[in-house]
Nucleic acid binder design. Structure first.
Lengths: 228, 228
DNA sequence: TCAGTTATTATGTGCAGACATATTAGCGTC
DNA sequence: GACGCTAATATGTCTGCACATAATAACTGA
């Protein structure tokens, strides 16, 4: 007899995976399960809620709880700060600020940030190193209007770390893709032009204004991994 | 005054983002917050627990709850079945089975599945089409010992969809990377050799045996996106 | 027959209280 | 001061109950 909401969750998961409750089937009500497991309904609720959150179950009032047609649909992945990511591999992190200018960003960047096309932004290019070797090239456009003045010396502290500590964040999105290395990216990362790079593109907004757009070009061999 | 655990969560999030509770700071106890918000401790607990799950807060017994040093660290992403993914774009999904043989997989595949090197597996290559155009190339090795017999006609039903409906799943992992198109991949996807492809690699295990290893090579332009 | 209303029902949320558990802080001893 | 024990404390979980809410089912009347 399972006891505790985690064991109940495990038991339900087993019944789903062994097809005792096959995909699409309606499972017993919380009340019935509480009776079977000899616990309070709130405990069953907790277990089922967690399973619904990961996409294993679909719940609707009155209709009841059913096993999702296509189980295993959501994965959570960590988005570490680069320094932590490098440190997690047991390597030493360092970075070099390659470029810092102020200017009007490409239309694509302004559009993604929902900024007027002519707004001048701070442009930073930073090369991050792991054990002295190129690891990822960071290309960032930063909205000075969204950041408290004065700005720090970005060759001393990485923009990402300064921003999370000093700028109010409201929403954002993140996208992953694969792109061929441009001439400048190839040079910075010491790879062949056109090499397949793993790209992370992130956009963040504050409560009032866009904060930053950043594109991370990872060196070939990079893998983003998570457990299901 | 916030009421309901969602509003409390929002209020706490605001205090974090406005730096009233800056990164690293310890926030009041559940009891104190329950008093402030005039609700039960369980309600505060629910709100704080959810925030901890997304990485905004770090909680320890006795030590209390503190704002994470580097907020925004976890994102959840959906892993749809290819047919749903295509349909979500309003396109028509179809697929062609390019290859079906039985043989010993490459060492790298056997190793990732933790299988003895000489185990023969079913090898499937499938090209998925969106509105008739190449969308993703699926390269799959399937352990027949982990699947119920008889196997279906994989030119009629896609392996993924058949597997989630008929095979008991226990654990798995997923990884994303960027790789240049091999000669055969380039031909199948109608792209230039060496083009940057977005690769999804998935490994799944049943309770007793490895089930399948699959590598999805997405056509250039593919983006995997999620909100933060 | 069908649209509109009402009743039913399963989940969603909330409360107060209780006990469990991990972790820290304090204390005493050597 | 370094150690090991004990007490204090914040979170983790559970219970039993209540009411809210959404979605379905049943009913009603034209």
């Amino acid at each position: 007899m399972p006891q505790g909401w985690e064991e109940i969750r495990a038991e339900v998961l087993t019944r789903i995976r062994t097809r005792r409750w096959p995909p699409g089937a309606v499972i017993p009500t919380e009340e019935a399960l509480a009776l079977e497991f000899d616990c309070a309904r709130a405990t069953v609720n907790r277990a089922l809620r967690e399973l619904a959150q990961t996409g294993m179950l679909e719940r609707k009032r009155k209709a009841g709880t059913r096993v999702a047609m296509l189980p295993v649909r959501k994965a959570t992945l960590d988005i570490p700060v680069i320094r932590q990511e490098v440190a997690a591999h047991g390597q030493v992190h360092a970075f070099r600020l390659l470029l810092q200018t102020t200017g009007v960003p490409p239309i694509a960047v302004a559009a993604r940030l929902q900024l007027a096309a002519a707004t001048p932004l701070l442009h930073l290019q930073t090369l991050h190193l792991a054990d002295g070797r190129a690891y990822v090239l960071e290309d960032r456009w930063l909205n000075p209007a969204a950041a408290p003045q004065p700005l720090p010396d970005f060759s001393e502290i990485s923009a990402n770390e300064w921003l999370v500590a000093h700028v109010t964040f409201a929403t954002g999105d993140i996208a992953f893709s694969a792109e061929p290395a441009s001439t400048s990216e190839a040079a910075a990362l010491s790879v062949a032009e056109g090499a397949a790079l793993f790209i992370t593109e992130r956009c963040t907004w504050g409560p009032d204004a866009p904060i930053t757009w950043v594109r991370l070009a990872h060196v070939p061999g990079y893998r983003l991994q998570t457990r299901l």
